[in-house]
Each structure stands twice: as structure tokens, then as C-alpha cells.
Design a protein around this nucleic acid. Structure first.
Length: 926
RNA sequence: GCGCGCUUAGCUCAGCGGUAGAGCAUCAGUAUCACACACUGGGGGUCGCAGGUUCAAAUCCUGCAGCGCGCACCA
């Protein structure tokens, strides 16, 4: 017991307890438990990723919620898992294989071989993030670890696809999509980041042709463009049909420079006459707006930029093969040489970048699969009417705005790593043959949906037998995979074993108990990608919201407010922080600096503070352990000192504040309250005062105080446990608190000890815990501070024992005197109602009386005179202000009585202080 | 352009109608027997600007400015 080390060393303690909890199955959720249910599903991290600060913030919050719920007596399911992260993972593996020289392009290996490599990569790296979450202390039910590419999960994805396909919400079509030339795949609208950039507006002359197709000297139409390289694919020039500058040219043609191709001038209302020259070059295959114009005017689609971002042969000699950015320079150079570049203006515009590969996206015309979102209105309603609550609430607006401006979701990706689209097609010789084939499909198979167009039959199926058969029979399976989010949006129920068969799902104990989940904790950056879509999927397939509350964290930034990124090198490795400071320290520091709804400016200092705090907690318990003597088991009202009552009241206040903060998900406030209570109120004041009893000989009194200490520490450890799970568990056992609780409620582990509740009224009454106690205790603490200041002013070192004299303004008993002596670090404190100071005696006035440091001549008279005069001036200003206030008849008439009283009390206090200062000054002068 | 948020001590933020607060940083002192990852004391703010409401405004209202973030097909 007395060999507890002076400094807390988290390393061994943390690993030991995590292992114990896991081995004893404490994290496992039992659906058959009689307790009420509490559940969270983890936002699945990338399976091959590593832990970053965002994960730390996010998962610490989830762990706090889960651990608190367990203590509150809930059966807790925190369901963990990982995400296959299509583009990111495939890109990493491709890069790796290329580095190893195993391939140049994935086609070199072929689909099956390539996927073997990805799976091998997943097997190799997949456990890393899980291990890291464990190291952080996350109390997930690991027996239920899920992966979005698990076979069960894949079946869910396929079933959902088939169901939506059957309902006509999923369709395939030729569309202009956002194309990522680096990953070479289509993206959804949400995956494009619009970044404002400095660019140019190039004004290009397109020579006008006469009706016979001959060039007309000096007659040109000038178009303005930010992307001159696309002109190689122009098929028209458009003007507003009502624009009288150009109306007469409608129907005429211009000669497309560099390609020497005649193209028409068309009238289209989409053209804004005010912008540029009022003439738009129309590139149907490379611009969404131009695509629409082209459809309206039946223009051809000439593709001049290939899927890899290089110019195609269609771009013509001299350009074909160039990268689009090189082509831009080349086109401008050529135009300049030909004298067709009218002018170049600087221009700030927004360029779409792929969120994944950070290259400019390229609008591209291609066949893709789309989803018309289901349950949109209901999804909007459940958030607006509070069935799902957002914290902070401000995100509701963002959410509903997005939902009311939805476009269909492009769900196909030209990748190999992911859920392959479960669609097989076959084109038959004639309709009769098609009908014959169609008749062979059982209509009762809910996992299969069929659509026919002409002689082509499209079969979407999640039925594995049928899938194999179709492949065997030579049907063609769609080569694309689904957007990763198309699997993530099913996460809350697919992870719980959803099958889509109502009866089976109804029997599923996990779904029954734990769906809908209670809380979701995630970043606002994926409100559209994930949160909104989960709500839609939940409503569609479970007919119930997926969660009751969504807590949106802030984004973790560095201490300068910059986003954390690998290239900036400002992203600390959480595992390194854990090694150096401990997981508890990291958790506490992160939570303490993370206010609700605001970005978190992370500083390693926060973690240091967390470590220091753990050390403080450790030593406070160590101090208790080092005390000899027996502690009272129950608190004895007759033996409680004023300090005991004070700390009990402060504890109650802290519990109340913590409850209030938790109901609003204000985790940083909880940590701040805990910090203040434990460090300032308990350690700095209460423990120091309690030493008066602990150092005395009265064993009964000492037992009582030790009882209070144990009572407070017991509560403190429980309150801290969700934030600092490891150290609190260690101390819970070390202090022997397990003996105070039943086996399943704290006797074996702090994890299941009861969550502290504010004290009941009869408790407060029995121990006489009321306002008056606070006043008196705090007056004594204020006196201590004043006295320490006196000592400081007299330049007396803190360790020099000195005598203080107090002329008491109210009776003080011997216990109070002893406490004050201790708090003042005094040799003695003499209570003398007649005390009259000699000249040059440092003195101050407190609520409890005038305090003297009877050491003449130790004060620097000049300096002290200045200081006191300045203070007097300040006080006189305060008095003046208060007097003015109080003499105002309107204030007298309208201010509530307690405010009036408070002002009068304050005025009295200030006047007392002023009077004392004046006499102190006088004492110095003479 | 529309919407949202922020602006309080050197830094990060609390406070949201009745004497301006915390942590860190800073300055001074301390090896006191829980803790130097500590203790003690101090200094530091006309609460972005301008109006208004009120007996009383950092706090409520209006306008302005600066910063940040969403959303929007003006090439």
C-alpha cells in the first residue's frame, strides 16, 4: 500500500485493465438482458487506415456515452466495424503493386488476381485500426466486429439494390457525371469539392462564315472561356435568343479554330447575355451546361478528353495525347499565333476537385447507375419534428436544405474493390427467346428483379444460386462496383443481422433490442454522405429511424486553426501520444478542449494537461492510502466539520452540473467541472483543510474525515470513469472501493458501478448541507488567501513559519483556528479581540476580521503605499458606481429586491475595505 | 449571391440581463512529510465597431466590418 509510486505510470495499468475487461466479456451486449437497451454503431473507419485525431475525438465521445450508460444500468451495445473504402483502398493497393513491379495497370493482373491482392492487404492491415481503438480504451463489443465486405453484409447490400431496382428507384442511364481522371471512376456530386481558384478568362475569336460557308474577313464572334482546351470539342456557339446583338446571326455558322470545322450558332435561353461577350462556346461532351444545350439542339458529342484526362485522337494532331493542362497551354499558344486570342483576363472561379484524389474532376458523359433517393420527405420530417435530434441543432438546417435540393445519386464506380453491382444482362436473338427465358425465373423470388428492354433482359439478383447460374450461362455481369456509401448507409441495421425478410428480422434479438440505436457520433462533413442516407435507408428498410440523437463533433485542427494533414505534418500520431502520456490523458485532454459544435484546436499541451490531471488523481488517492487509521463506514452528521459539509455541497453541485452538461452533450463542460471540482475544490481547499484533522490525535474525528474523503473519492472515481476508464479502475480496486458495492454493480469493476446522482433532499438535511456552510467556509478560505498575500508582500518565503494575529469579527472555534493556521502556513494564529497593530504592520481586512502579520519593518513602505493607494482608488470607483446605482430612484423602484439587497451588501463590503485601507495607509505613513 | 457560425486576457475558450471567468502562457516565490506532471501569490480585458431596448447589456434587437464553413451550372 505504501509502495504506490509517486508518479502515475499509465502504460502497464492501461493495458492490464483493457485486457481484463475484454477477457471478462464486459463489453459484450446481451440482447436477452432485462436491462433497458442503449446502443451506438461506430462510424466505421477505413479498414486499412490508421488512427488519427479525428478518430480519437469521435470514439472517445462514443466510449464516454457507452460507459456512462453501462453505469446507469443500461445493456450497452457499441457495435464496431470497418469500412472497405473503395477508392482509397484500391488506390493504395494499386500504388503498392506498381511499386513492387507486379503490374502497371490493374488490367495486367485481371480482376480476380487483383482482388486477391486487395484482400491480402486487408488481412494484413485490417486489424491495425481495431488494435488502436482498443488501445484508446474503446469498450466496443468486439465479438460483433463487422466489415462492409463481409459476405452477410454484402448480401444486405445486394438485397437493398435489388429492392430499389424493383421499385424503379435504381436505373441506368447515359449522363454527364463527375469523373475523377486519377482514380478513373465516376463520383457522386457530394464527392466533388469546389475550390475557388485564380484562373483566366480567355476571349477567343471564332471566324464567322457566310451562308455559303466562306470565311468573312475580320468578322468574328468572340467567346469567353475558362477552359480553352475544350474548344477542340466544340459543336456550336450559343447566344441568348433575345440578345439583339447576335439575334441576326442565329442559324449562321462559325469556323472552329484549330479544328477548321464549321459549327452552328444557336439560340439558347441558358446563356447569360451579361456575362463575358454573351457568346458561349458549346462543348457538349465536356460541360454539364453545354450538354443540356446540346440535347436541346441535337448537337453531336465529340469527346476530346479521355478518361485518363489526356486528349483523345479526336482532339486532332498536335493535341492528342497531351494532358488536359498541357493541352490548355498548347491551345492558347496556337490561338495566339493565329491571332485569334482577343484578350486574357484574370478570373476567379470555382474548380471541382475530387475529394479522394485531389485532381480537378472532369465532366464526362457515361453510362452509370443512379438512385432516386427513397423516403426523402419522411427523412426531412423525422429530423424537423424531433424524432431524431441533432446536437448542435444548427445542422438541421444544412440537412433539410440538402434534402430539398436532391439530385439522383450516381452509385456506380469504375473500380474493382467494392460491392459488384448485382446485375446480369443478356441480349436475345428475338423476343420469343427472351420471353422463354423470362418464364424460367420464379416470380416468388424476392431477391430477384427483372427488367426488359427490347431483346435485352436485365436481371438484378441477390440470390447466390441464381447469380452463379447466370454467370455460368454466359450472362454478362455489370463490371462496376457500388459507391462505398451505398453500403455504409445500411450500417445501423445491416450490422445487426438484417435479412430483409420481415419475419426473420422480427425474430432477430439484436435488431429487436438495439435498433433504433440511441446515439450516433460523427463529423458534420459526412452529414450528407452518411447521416442523411442512413436515415433514408432506415426508414425504407426498417420503417424506423436508425438513431435518436446525432452528435456532430467539430473538426480537429492544429493549434493555429489549420486542418490536420499529412503534407503539413501537423497531424500528431495518437498512438505516439498514448505512449508518451497515456490513453486517459489523451482522452481527457481532447475532451476538455472540444466544445460542442465548434472545431477543436488541438495542442499537445492539452494531452499534457490530461496527464497532469491523472497524476493529480493518482496522488490524491495515494495521499488517502498513506493515512493511518480506520475510516468511518458511514458519514456521521455530528462529526462533520464545516469543511466536510462544504466539499459535500461542492460535490453535489458538480454532480448537478455534470448531469446538466451531459443532457446537452457538452462533454467539455463536464471535464471542466470535474477538473475544477477535483483539483481546486477538493485538492487545493478541502484536503489542505482536512489535514487539520488528519494530523491531530482525535481518532474518531479522523475516522469521520477519512470517511468523507472516501465518500468523495468514491464519487469522483465514478464520475471520472467514462473519461478516464483505466486509471479510475486501477484506483477503484487499489482503494478497495469494490468492497462497498455489490458484485454486479461495482464490486468487480468500476465499469458497472452506479452513476452518481445528485443528493436527495433528506440527505442534504441529515448532514445539514446548506448555503450558510458555503458562506462561512469560503470566508475562511478567502482569509487564507489574503493572509498568504500579506506574507508575499512582506517578502516572506512560503516555508517560513510566521505568527498571524486575527482580530475576529465573529466567534471562531478552535477547529476553525487550526484550519486557518494550516491554510496560512502559520506557526500560530492568535485570536485577539483587542489586537492593535503597531506601525508598519502588514494588515488586511476580511469578512472574518482584521488580519495582522506582526512583523514591523519587513514591508517596503514606499511600494506598499503605492499599492494600497491604487487599490483604494479602484475601490472608490466601485463605491461611487454602487452609490450612484443605489441612489437612482428608477433602480430602487424597478430592480428586484434580491438585486437591491445584493448591491447594498456589496456597498457595505467595499466601504469596510476602503476604511481598512485608509487606516492601513495611515499606519504606514506615520 | 443565399444560408449558417464565429469575433471576450498574449493563446484556446466559458459566461448569454444584475460586481468580467477558466486553462495554458507570463512574472515572483517555494524542495512543506500526496503530487515540481506540484504548491503559493501577482499582473493582464473600454467583452469586433456603431446605434437601439432596459433601472441595468459581454449578455436582447438592428446595422456594419473581419474571419470561417456550407449551398448555388453564369461559360
Amino acid at each position: 500500500m505504501n509502495d504506490i509510486p509517486k508518479a502515475y505510470d499509465p502504460g502497464a495499468v492501461e493495458e492490464k485493465w483493457y485486457k481484463t475487461w475484454e477477457e471478462r466479456g464486459y463489453f459484450v451486449a446481451d440482447p436477452s438482458s432485462p436491462k433497458p437497451a442503449y446502443s451506438i454503431v461506430i462510424p466505421p473507419p477505413n479498414v486499412t487506415g490508421v488512427l488519427h485525431m479525428g478518430h480519437v475525438l469521435n470514439n472517445t465521445i462514443q466510449d464516454i456515452l457507452a460507459r456512462k450508460a453501462r453505469m446507469q444500468g443500461y445493456e450497452v451495445l457499441w457495435l464496431p466495424g470497418t469500412d472497405h473504402a473503395g477508392i482509397a483502398t484500391q488506390a493504395v493497393v494499386e500504388k503498392n503493386l506498381r511499386k513492387q513491379g507486379l503490374m502497371k495497370h490493374r488490367e495486367d493482373l485481371g480482376r480476380d488476381k487483383f482482388l486477391e491482392h486487395v484482400w491480402a492487404w486487408k488481412e494484413k492491415h485490417g486489424h491495425i485500426i481495431v488494435q488502436q481503438l482498443k488501445r484508446l480504451g474503446c469498450s466496443c463489443d468486439w465479438s460483433r466486429l463487422r466489415f462492409t465486405m463481409d459476405s452477410d453484409y454484402s448480401r444486405c447490400v445486394q438485397k437493398v439494390f435489388v429492392a430499389l431496382f424493383r421499385d424503379g428507384l435504381i436505373y441506368r442511364g447515359l449522363r454527364m457525371v463527375h469523373w475523377d481522371p486519377a482514380a478513373q471512376t465516376a463520383l457522386s456530386d457530394e464527392e466533388v469539392e469546389w475550390i475557388e481558384e485564380k484562373g483566366h478568362l480567355w476571349y477567343i475569336r471564332y471566324p464567322l462564315l457566310d451562308p455559303e460557308g466562306r470565311t468573312l474577313p475580320d468578322q468574328c464572334i468572340i467567346v469567353a472561356t475558362t477552359r480553352p482546351e475544350t474548344m477542340l470539342g466544340d459543336e456550336a456557339v450559343a447566344v441568348h435568343p433575345q440578345d439583339h446583338r447576335y439575334r441576326h446571326l442565329l442559324g449562321r455558322r462559325v469556323l472552329l479554330p484549330l479544328r477548321n470545322k464549321p459549327i452552328p450558332i444557336v439560340g439558347d435561353a441558358a446563356v447569360e447575355p451579361e456575362f463575358g461577350t454573351g457568346c458561349v462556346k458549346v462543348t457538349p461532351a465536356h460541360d454539364p451546361a453545354d450538354y443540356e444545350i446540346a440535347l436541346r439542339h441535337q448537337l453531336p458529342f465529340t469527346v476530346v478528353i479521355g478518361p485518363d484526362g489526356r486528349m483523345t485522337p479526336e482532339a486532332g494532331h498536335g493535341f492528342a495525347g497531351l494532358d488536359r493542362m498541357e493541352a490548355r497551354k498548347a491551345v492558347v499558344a496556337h490561338l495566339e499565333k493565329l491571332g485569334l486570342l482577343e484578350k486574357t483576363e484574370d478570373y476567379i472561379h470555382r474548380v471541382g476537385y475530387s475529394q479522394r484524389s485531389h485532381v480537378p474532376i472532369e465532366p464526362r458523359l457515361s453510362e452509370q447507375w443512379f438512385l432516386r433517393y427513397p423516403e426523402v420527405e419522411r427523412a426531412q420530417r423525422v429530423v424537423e419534428n424531433g424524432q431524431i435530434r441533432f446536437h448542435p441543432e444548427k445542422w438541421v438546417k444544412t440537412y433539410t436544405h440538402w434534402l430539398s435540393n436532391l439530385k439522383d445519386w450516381c452509385i456506380s464506380r469504375q473500380l474493382w474493390w467494392g460491392h459488384r453491382i448485382p446485375v446480369w444482362t443478356r441480349t436475345f436473338e428475338d423476343l420469343a427467346e427472351l420471353e422463354a427465358a423470362r418464364a424460367t425465373f420464379p416470380l416468388s423470388d424476392l431477391d430477384t428483379a427483372i427488367r426488359c428492354q427490347d431483346r435485352t433482359m436485365v436481371v438484378a439478383t441477390a440470390n447466390p444460386v441464381l447469380q452463379q447460374q447466370l454467370t455460368r450461362d454466359g450472362w454478362h455481369q455489370d463490371p462496376d462496383v457500388l459507391d462505398t456509401w451505398f453500403s455504409s448507409w445500411l450500417w445501423p441495421f445491416a450490422t445487426m443481422g438484417w435479412t430483409g425478410q420481415a419475419e426473420r428480422d422480427h425474430q432477430n434479438p439484436t435488431l429487436r433490442r438495439f435498433y433504433p440505436t440511441t446515439d450516433l457520433v460523427t463529423g458534420p462533413d459526412i452529414i450528407f454522405f452518411w447521416v442523411a442516407r442512413m436515415i433514408m435507408a432506415g426508414l425504407r428498410f426498417m420503417d424506423e429511424v436508425p438513431f435518436r440523437n446525432v452528435y456532430f463533433t467539430g473538426i480537429i485542427r492544429d493549434k493555429h486553426g489549420r486542418k490536420m494533414s499529412k503534407s503539413l505534418g501537423n497531424s500528431p500520431d495518437p498512438l505516439d501520444l498514448i505512449r508518451r502520456y497515456g490513453a486517459d490523458a489523451l482522452r481527457f485532454g481532447t475532451m476538455r478542449s472540444a466544445p460542442l459544435g465548434q472545431d477543436v484546436l488541438f495542442d499537445e499541451k492539452d494531452v499534457e494537461l490530461g496527464r497532469n490531471f491523472c497524476n493529480k488523481l493518482w496522488n490524491a488517492c495515494r495521499f488517502r492510502q498513506l493515512q493511518q487509521g480506520q475510516a468511518a463506514i458511514a458519514l456521521d452528521p455530528d462529526r462533520l466539520t464545516v469543511d466536510d459539509r462544504w466539499i459535500l455541497l461542492k460535490l453535489n453541485t458538480a454532480i448537478q452540473e455534470i448531469h446538466a452538461a451531459f443532457t446537452e452533450y457538452r462533454f467539455n463542460e463536464v471535464t471542466q467541472t470535474l477538473y475544477r471540482f477535483f483539483w481546486t475544490e477538493y485538492c487545493d481547499w478541502y484536503l489542505e483543510a482536512a489535514k487539520a484533522v488528519l494530523q491531530a490525535r482525535d481518532v474518531y474525528q479522523k475516522a469521520s474525515t477519512l470517511g468523507v474523503i472516501d465518500f468523495v473519492l468514491d464519487h469522483t472515481l465514478r464520475l471520472f470513469h467514462p473519461f478516464l476508464p483505466h486509471i479510475t479502475e486501477e484506483l477503484w480496486h487499489g482503494m478497495g472501493f469494490t468492497k462497498r458495492y455489490p458484485e454486479d454493480r461495482g464490486g468487480c469493476s468500476l465499469m458497472f458501478a452506479p452513476w452518481p446522482e445528485p443528493f436527495a433532499a433528506d440527505f442534504l438535511q441529515r448532514y445539514q448541507l446548506h448555503e450558510g456552510v458555503l458562506r462561512f467556509a469560503e470566508a475562511r478560505y478567502a482569509l487564507a488567501t489574503e493572509g498568504r498575500n500579506l506574507r508575499r508582500l512582506a517578502n516572506l518565503p512560503a516555508n517560513r513559519k510566521v505568527k498571524f494575529i486575527l482580530r475576529p469579527a465573529q466567534p471562531l472555534n478552535d477547529y476553525d483556528r487550526q484550519v486557518l493556521t494550516l491554510l496560512l502556513q502559520a506557526e500560530t494564529l492568535e485570536l485577539d479581540p483587542e489586537a492593535a497593530p503597531r506601525r508598519g504592520t502588514p494588515t488586511c481586512r476580511t469578512l472574518l476580521g482584521d488580519l495582522y502579520l506582526p512583523l514591523e519593518g519587513v514591508v517596503d513602505v514606499a511600494a506598499e503605499t503605492v499599492r494600497l493607494s491604487q487599490e483604494l482608488t479602484k475601490i472608490e470607483v466601485e463605491i461611487e458606481r454602487l452609490q450612484q446605482r443605489l441612489s437612482d430612484s428608477e433602480f430602487q423602484a424597478k430592480a428586484p429586491p434580491h438585486v437591491l439587497q445584493e448591491h447594498e451588501r456589496r456597498l457595505h463590503e467595499w466601504r469596510q475595505k476602503a476604511a481598512h485601507l485608509r487606516s492601513a495607509l495611515e499606519l504606514l505613513q506615520t
